[in-house]
Amino acid sequence: MQSLRVEADEATAKVEELQKQVKALEHENLQKEQEITSLQHRNGLLDAQVEKLEAEKKDLKASAGDTQQHATQNETLQRRLQLLEEEAEEADKNLRETNDKLRQTDVKAGHFERKVQALEQERDQWETKYEEVSKKYAAIQKDLENLQIEISGM
């Protein structure tokens, strides 16, 4: 009997020891599950952060592309502005030359207008002289006819 008691005590001790081991393993298992849950939560947060960073990266790439496009567009507009400024300078130069030629033409026109006025005055004087001479000629012609009539009548 005693050997059964000893066996029972040993079995009881072994059961208690195994129960302690089971409790320790259950406790360890619970800690591991909590750690797994914590790590899964942290993994979820990190995945969300990765997605956020990837979206930000995509936005930054798009922004960089837009910046490059704006830089290219800016260069194009700068070249266009330079060409327009050069064209404006050329047009201004042509305008000054045209104004100079217009002033010269106005001076010449004024000169020719004075010349025309002088020639018109001279023409008027000649017309007046012609009318006077025509009147004198007509008077002399009449006197000549009268003289011829008188000479014929004599």
Rank of each mutant, 00 (worst) to 15 (best):
K52L: 11
D92Q: 09
Q82Y: 07
N43S: 14
E90Y: 04
E33D: 10
E54K: 03
A71Y: 04
N74G: 06
A139Q: 10
G153D: 12
S63D: 07
Q125P: 00
Q40E: 12
E7D: 13
E56M: 01
Q69W: 06
E90R: 03
N43W: 00
E150Q: 11
S38Q: 11
E122H: 05
L144P: 00
A13Q: 11
I149K: 05
Q31V: 14
T72Q: 15
D9K: 05
S3H: 14
E75Q: 05
R114K: 14
M154S: 06
K129T: 13
Q141P: 00
Q125T: 13
Q117P: 01
T72G: 08
K61D: 15
K108N: 13
K14G: 02
A139S: 14
E90S: 13
L144T: 07
R42C: 06
E127F: 02
V15S: 08
A8D: 06
Q2D: 10
A71D: 07
A11F: 02
S134N: 11
K135G: 08
E122P: 00
E51C: 03
R42S: 14
L4F: 05
I149H: 07
A71I: 08
A138G: 05
E7F: 05
K142L: 06
R96V: 13
Q125D: 14
I149T: 14
D59V: 12
K58D: 07
E35T: 07
E150G: 10
I151C: 10
E120Y: 00
E90D: 12
A109M: 06
L95T: 11
M154V: 10
N74Q: 15
E122W: 00
K52I: 09
S152D: 08
E10G: 09
Q82D: 15
A24H: 02
D124S: 10
L84P: 00
E86T: 09
